[in-house]
Design a protein around this nucleic acid. Structure first.
Lengths: 153, 153
DNA sequence: ATAGGAACTTCAAGTACTTGAAGACAAGCG
DNA sequence: CGCTTGTCTTCAAGTACTTGAAGTTCCTAT
């Protein structure tokens, strides 16, 4: 039999450092059932995180980073425990996530263009280039019009 | 005399798209006094945003993206520090915002890749391709490390 | 053995939005 | 003209943490 002589465990602070989630958030996720209750110390009430717990929390951290809601995370992780049986559910959830990220990327590109235009505008003002400033102001308005057309979606 | 014959105005939705702040947040900021009340339409009660309003909101968006609390934003704007800022200051702030947007775009591209990988993983599981699933799982783990770095900063 | 301090605990309240319900207003169509 | 569609309005409630208070527990050092 394999002897787990070095069964590494972690305090909440260590778990927080390793997952990138604040300790308060770890407790919060546990309280609302995103993760199952963490085992406690024999003599204390302190949470004791195993490496398995850490793996799961890394997953949660990733889902959180993609902007998934806690409700969806809870569902996703519940399905994860079922394995391949729920693969189609996982794919559907992830595809929705992919679409959301694409929309976000689009919005950010628009903002980048707008801010870039504003920088050019103030640089023209600084250089005393009134004509350039006005031209850039017009461009900003054009951007607004483009936005209006693209408003379809 | 300069005739402001074409005084361009914007609906809340257009303002939201141009500033990157949701319409609900625009209303929220107005309700708690971060920005002064927006003029309303003559016949309707709808908010009508001028280009001046848009400029101000772009600044608010910058401050918000930089992590300033609403309380601090209110104080900052009430002190008129924004209006008094020189062109060079405005450019500096906008460039910081531009960098932030670039970083966000990068992070989103990374997350998109991560989610795409996860979709491929579950599709491999669904197809009974154990070897492929394992390979994709490893790839995802490597990407997760990158993701974590982006999140921290 | 015990005193001090860091780190942990729960729970309540705060923060910064976000969402949903219910209704008003304006344009386009039969 | 009325009807549908769409965007707007307010306000209340919800979300996802975050912070703070008050009370344990762990560790280290005297």
């Amino acid at each position: 039999m394999s002897a787990p002589s070095i069964r590494h465990t972690y305090s909440i602070k260590e778990a927080a450092a390793l997952t990138g989630l604040p300790a308060s958030t770890l407790r919060y996720y546990e309280s609302i059932g995103v993760i199952t209750p963490i085992r406690r110390g024999a003599s204390s009430k302190h949470r004791v995180y195993t490496e398995e717990d850490l793996d799961l929390l890394t997953w949660v951290s990733c889902l959180s980073a993609t902007g998934m809601s806690v409700a969806d995370m809870r569902r996703y992780l519940a399905n994860g425990e079922l394995g391949a049986a729920a693969a189609s559910d996982q794919i559907a959830l992830l595809k929705a996530q992919e679409e959301q990220l694409a929309a976000e990327a689009k919005a950010i590109a628009l903002r980048k263009r707008y801010v870039g235009l504003k920088i050019a505008y103030w640089q023209a003002v600084q250089d005393g280039d009134g004509a350039g400033a006005e031209r850039l102001s017009d461009e900003a308005r054009t951007l607004a019009d483009d936005l209006k057309k693209t408003r379809k979606q």
